[in-house]
Simulated assay, not measured.
Amino acid sequence: MEDKNIVSQQRYPAYLDFVRRQLQRDYDKQDLSTNGLSIFTHFDPLIQMSAEKSLEVFYLSTKTSQIARCSGDNTT
Protein backbone atom coordinates (compact mmCIF):
# COMPACT_ATOMS: atom_id res chain seq x y z
CA MET A 1 0.00 0.00 0.00
CA GLU A 2 2.88 2.36 0.77
CA ASP A 3 4.22 2.10 -2.81
CA LYS A 4 0.93 3.35 -4.26
CA ASN A 5 0.98 6.30 -1.84
CA ILE A 6 4.51 7.29 -2.85
CA VAL A 7 3.65 7.06 -6.54
CA SER A 8 0.57 9.23 -5.96
CA GLN A 9 2.53 11.93 -4.17
CA GLN A 10 5.26 12.09 -6.79
CA ARG A 11 3.24 11.71 -9.97
CA TYR A 12 -0.20 13.15 -9.18
CA PRO A 13 0.35 16.25 -7.02
CA ALA A 14 -2.53 18.09 -8.72
CA TYR A 15 -4.99 15.40 -7.68
CA LEU A 16 -3.77 15.48 -4.09
CA ASP A 17 -3.97 19.27 -4.09
CA PHE A 18 -7.56 19.01 -5.35
CA VAL A 19 -8.45 16.65 -2.48
CA ARG A 20 -6.77 18.95 0.05
CA ARG A 21 -8.68 21.98 -1.24
CA GLN A 22 -11.97 20.11 -1.01
CA LEU A 23 -11.20 19.02 2.54
CA GLN A 24 -10.28 22.56 3.53
CA ARG A 25 -13.51 23.80 1.98
CA ASP A 26 -15.70 21.22 3.72
CA TYR A 27 -14.05 20.89 7.16
CA ASP A 28 -12.68 23.18 9.84
CA LYS A 29 -8.89 23.39 9.88
CA GLN A 30 -8.82 22.26 13.52
CA ASP A 31 -10.89 19.16 12.73
CA LEU A 32 -8.51 18.19 9.94
CA SER A 33 -5.40 18.55 12.07
CA THR A 34 -6.52 17.24 15.47
CA ASN A 35 -9.12 14.51 14.98
CA GLY A 36 -6.84 11.87 13.45
CA LEU A 37 -8.86 11.57 10.25
CA SER A 38 -7.90 9.10 7.55
CA ILE A 39 -8.81 10.16 4.04
CA PHE A 40 -9.57 7.57 1.38
CA THR A 41 -10.30 8.27 -2.28
CA HIS A 42 -11.21 6.11 -5.25
CA PHE A 43 -8.05 7.15 -7.04
CA ASP A 44 -5.75 4.25 -7.87
CA PRO A 45 -2.40 5.32 -9.35
CA LEU A 46 -1.81 1.88 -10.87
CA ILE A 47 -5.09 2.07 -12.78
CA GLN A 48 -4.28 5.66 -13.77
CA MET A 49 -0.88 4.62 -15.14
CA SER A 50 -2.51 1.77 -17.08
CA ALA A 51 -5.09 4.15 -18.56
CA GLU A 52 -2.38 6.63 -19.55
CA LYS A 53 -0.37 3.87 -21.22
CA SER A 54 -3.45 2.65 -23.12
CA LEU A 55 -4.13 6.17 -24.38
CA GLU A 56 -0.51 6.56 -25.43
CA VAL A 57 -0.59 3.29 -27.38
CA PHE A 58 -3.90 4.25 -29.00
CA TYR A 59 -2.62 7.71 -29.90
CA LEU A 60 0.58 6.35 -31.42
CA SER A 61 -1.29 3.69 -33.43
CA THR A 62 -3.76 6.29 -34.69
CA LYS A 63 -0.95 8.67 -35.62
CA THR A 64 0.91 5.89 -37.46
CA SER A 65 -2.28 4.94 -39.31
CA GLN A 66 -2.87 8.56 -40.36
CA ILE A 67 0.71 8.92 -41.63
CA ALA A 68 0.38 5.70 -43.61
CA ARG A 69 -2.83 6.92 -45.26
CA CYS A 70 -1.30 10.28 -46.13
CA SER A 71 1.72 8.62 -47.71
CA GLY A 72 -0.46 6.37 -49.86
CA ASP A 73 0.40 3.17 -48.01
CA ASN A 74 -2.70 0.96 -48.25
CA THR A 75 -1.32 -1.89 -46.14
CA THR A 76 -2.81 -0.54 -42.89
Score class of each variant (00 low, 15 high):
Leu32Met: 09
Tyr15His: 11
Thr41Glu: 04
Tyr59Cys: 02
Arg69Ala: 10
Leu60Ser: 07
Tyr59Glu: 02
Thr62Ile: 01
Met1Gly: 12
Gln48Pro: 00
Leu37Asn: 04
Ser50Asp: 09
Phe58Glu: 00
Gln10Met: 12
Met49Leu: 11
Ser61Pro: 01
Cys70Ile: 07
Ser65Thr: 06
Thr75Lys: 13
Thr75Phe: 06
Tyr59Val: 02
Gly72Ala: 03
Asn74Gly: 05
Lys63His: 10
Phe18Met: 15
Ser33Asn: 11
Gln22Lys: 12
Thr64Lys: 14
Gln10Cys: 07
Ile47Pro: 00
Cys70Ser: 13
Arg69Ser: 06
Cys70Tyr: 01
Gln24Val: 10
Asp73Ser: 04
Cys70Met: 10
Ser54Val: 02
Thr62Met: 04
Met1Lys: 14
Ser8Gly: 08
Arg69Met: 08
Met1His: 11
Thr76Glu: 00
Phe43Arg: 08
Leu37Tyr: 04
Leu37Val: 07
Ala51Thr: 10
Ser65Ile: 00
Phe40Lys: 15
Ile67Glu: 13
Phe58Cys: 00
Phe40His: 12
Lys53Ile: 00
Tyr12Asp: 00
Val57Tyr: 05
Thr34Gly: 02
Gln48Arg: 11
Arg11Leu: 05
His42Leu: 14
Arg69Lys: 14
Phe43His: 04
His42Trp: 03
Ala14Leu: 09
Phe40Leu: 14
Leu46His: 02
Asp17Phe: 06
Met1Trp: 10
